[in-house]
Amino acid sequence: MKPKHQRLTLALLALAAIVGATLLAMSALRDQASYFYTPGDAIRDHVEPGRAVRLGGMVAGGSIRRAADGVTIDFVVTDGKQSVPVRFKGIVPDLFKENSGVVAEGAFDAGGTFVADTILAKHDERYMPPQIAGEMHKSESLKK
């Protein structure tokens, strides 16, 4: 192989790798990116069961029920018009309360209940300098 050809081969290989990575990324994104829905959106769009999405809204007043095992809770997320039942097993964040904002990550089951594996509660001290906001990004959600 002449140097010139080798250079071209390398350039093409690099291009192929970049295109390949992009395609791989795009196809994975189509399957894996989780979209943000309000209960109304989710009901209107018929989000398919098992697909990872985020559900945001208010925790409906009086809707929190704790199961006998002490760690599973059921509640209703509402946007004022429509509501969706949510089940979550785990430790809820401090600011998780009825009538307050909540974002749940998870998927719908076949019966239309949203099974959350993460509950993000809105943080009280929202108005903090941006740099801490960056670090705090993690703390805003409480895994599982």
């Binding site: 208010m58 309360k97 009538n99 307050s100 904002g101 809105k122 943080h123 009280d124 001290e125 929202r126 108005y127």
Partner: peptide, 12 residues
Amino acid sequence: SSVQVAMGSSGV
């Protein structure tokens, strides 16, 4: 923060 929450406010 109970009234704050009832007001739909999420921060100060």
